[in-house]
Structure formats: C-alpha cells, structure tokens
Design a protein around this nucleic acid. Structure first.
Lengths: 214, 214
DNA sequence: CTACTTTTGTAGCGATCGTTCGAGAAGTAC
DNA sequence: GTACTTCTCGAACGATCGCTACAAAAGTAG
C-alpha cells in the first residue's frame, strides 16, 4: 500500500475544486446548479469532475459535508463551547449574522437554502438537508433543556418551542441576508430575537393567548 | 366591442388552471417547475397553456399576482385593518402560522420560497420577488413608525430593525413550515417572537451590546 | 351549408440537462 | 527505451428543457 500513485497526475487541486463547488451550490442551490456552471467555475472539464467526485449528487453531498465542517461549524461550536445556553444562542446568532453576510462568500446558509426549490427527482437531497436541519433544532433543544433542568431557565420553559423559534430566526436571517440585509441589520435582528429569551421575571399569568402590551 | 367571442371555445377553466399553476409553483418554485409538470397537473396540453398564459415566465408572474391577492392577502389586511401596530403584527404572525401549514395547500409562502434556487437566467424573477418582499418590510416598518410617532411605542424604537426582525420571523416560519412544523409549532414561534416587542418597561440601559440575563 | 376564428393534440424544434466514450497526453515502474 | 496507469479533452449520448408549427377539431357568423 505505497503512497505513490501511478498514472497521469490530476491537473487541479481537488480541495480547491471542492471549495469552488461549495461556492456555486451555495449561491444557486442544488437543482439550479448545472454541470456546465461547475466545470466553468472550477476550470476543469466534465470528465475530470466526474472522475474526481462521481456524479453531481455525490459532489453536492461531499460539498455539503465540507461546508458543515467548515463554514457552518460555528453553530456546533457555539453550542459545544458555551456552557450557558443563553450565551450559546447569543453567540450562535451573532456569528450567524457575520457568517451570512460575508462579502467574500455567498449570502445566507447553504444548509438552509440550497434545496428549497427542487424537482421531484431531487427529493432525496431535500430530505437529507431537512434531516440535517432537524438535527440542528434537536441539538439546540437539548442545550435549552439542559439549562432548564439545571435551573438556569424557568422550570416552565418549553425547550422545543424555544429551539424552533431560534431555528426559525436563523432561517429568517439567512433569507434576509439573501435579500440584501447588512451585517448590522442581522446583528440587530439577533439582538431583538434575544429579547424573547425567557427569564424568571417574565412569566406570563395566563397561558391561553399572546401577551398583549398596549 | 361585443362580448361574444368566435372561434373554438377553450376546453378548460382558465382560473382553475391558474390555481393549479399556483399550487405547482408554490410547491416546487419557479425554476424547478417544468412545463411538463404544469401541463400534467392542469390536464391541458402545452399549446393550450402557451395560448392562455404566454410563456412560463408570464404564467408565473400571473400566478404570483393572484397568489398575493388571495393566499397572501392576509398580510396586507393585518396591517390595514388593525389600528394598533402590535395587534397588526400579532395577527400577521398568527394568520401566517395557519396559512403556512394548511393541509390543503403547499407549505410555507410562495413569495418567500419560490425563487430561492434559481439559474442566472431567472435572475429577473428573483429580483421581482425580492422587491415584493422588500415592499412588505417597508409596509411593516411604516406601520411601526406610525405607532412610534403616535406614542404607542417607545420613542427610541427602531422601526427598521423591528420590521426586519418580524420579516425574518415570517421567513423563518415559512421555512419551518416546509420543514414539517405544525400549526401549533408556528403559533408558539409567533408567540415567542412577540415577546421581543418593545415596551416602555424594557428599555435597555446601555446600547452597546446584547441584553444578557444570566 | 360555407366562411372564419380560435383551440386542440401531435409531433418536433433547437438548446441544455447530466453523463460517458474514446483517443491522446502525462505521469510512474521497470 | 517499453509497459502500464490515470487523467484530460473533444465529442456525443439519450433525456429533458421551454416552446412552437401544423393540421384537425369545434365553435360562431352569415
């Protein structure tokens, strides 16, 4: 099992090509990205692409995997590295505001946006991204649930609702980023969303309706 | 200018066909919807479709216009019919929770989702929907601004930030609906989002960072 | 009925889709 | 050098894309 490979060496950097593929899929999504767009963006021929990555589906899945471990890794890091659930969510939203509006990258989140408009034949891709997003919601929910059980959140806190809310905020921030919102806009969206964080002082008396400040 | 038209009469109901087109575009978005999917769903041939609506682009724009005046009209109604800005936003979010999860319709919002993944040649469609969404944000911002000027909101209220926030929440709710969230889930997301509504009691002391309840 | 108008279904247009074949290029192994 | 392996390039595969020419069908007008 020697490390030296025989045959004609690849003329391009596979990692760089994968980065390029991430960029195109990030910008246009799975279905709307054609092989022609990819070969043009990566500067390689179609046979080279297929030899290196398999087919379009496999290339997307590999790009997605790399995206999650790099550009999207801040989400897992925030939950893992911040002991306090509030700090984790604050950091999550703050870093998302920056990540979704970086001038050197496509806007928004690939995991959120890349498979929104898909033909029925790409249903498996849609399902895969949906599943990954659901994992994110569950991770957030677990973080909130742990904080509630350790007494750092009111006992009546509904972790599922709160996790769904902040996931929706993230998805909304991604959409707003794509619509042209600035980093500052998103930071203030994040700040506003954090006002909904439960505290011991804001327990509502009834549970039938929405709180209605006049 | 007589009302009676000569020639072979149309074999299908144009309005019903337009409704069907709305459903398909709503479900799959603009680019991922093919003419074959439309003709199959509407039960008509391609030439009939082109004779009645022009081309795919024109059909989508007409479907979009009808969508906004019917399924999506609740947003404008909430802002127009509720004098109080808070009541308007509460109603907006509540009705969105229901509208985005109706079992007899595609999930989410067509205006939000239908042009997320598009090829470069559909950039005009993307821009059009973006513009319409921006109009929605501005309408919400105007409503909040009016409430602030009339003293029903704290004077320091940033209408732009608040409008961007609740627009992001709507977009997030649409995404969550597509990801399988229930009506109840979205109602609770709406309820949570309303906790961020500004009140006279919650004026922050500093303005440098995020509020940080421990 | 005939003349006219519009819609219908079939069939196919050129373009692009994702994908692959086959020949030559570019490397290592001996 | 020759043998072998792998990659690159141009070309093209069948399928589908949005769209339309054409002729038969189905109505009104006289």
């Amino acid at each position: 099992m020697g490390g030296v490979k025989t045959g004609r060496p690849r003329s391009f950097d596979r990692d760089r090509a994968l980065e390029g593929a991430i960029a195109v899929f990030w910008e246009h999504g799975y279905d709307a990205t054609s092989i022609a767009m990819l070969t043009k963006a990566l500067g390689i021929g179609a046979p080279s692409l297929y030899a290196a990555f398999g087919d379009k589906r496999a290339l997307f899945l590999e790009a997605l995997d790399r995206y999650i471990r790099t550009y999207g890794a801040f989400t897992e890091r925030a939950l893992a590295e911040e002991p306090n659930a509030y700090d984790a969510v604050e950091r999550l939203l703050r870093e998302a505001a920056a990540a979704y509006t970086r001038p050197d990258r496509p806007r928004g989140c690939l995991l959120i946006t890349a498979a929104t408009n898909c033909a029925p034949q790409s249903a498996d891709i849609v399902a895969r991204l949906r599943g990954l997003r659901a994992m994110g919601v569950r991770a957030l929910e677990a973080k909130i649930d742990a904080a509630t059980r350790s007494g750092r959140l009111p006992a009546h806190t509904d972790a599922h609702v709160l996790a769904t809310f902040y996931s929706a905020v993230l998805q909304g921030m991604s959409a707003q980023a794509r619509d042209g919102a600035t980093t500052s806009d998103l930071e203030q969206v994040a700040e506003t969303a954090l006002r909904a964080w439960p505290s011991a002082a804001d327990q509502r008396t009834g549970d039938s309706g929405l709180a209605a400040p006049k």
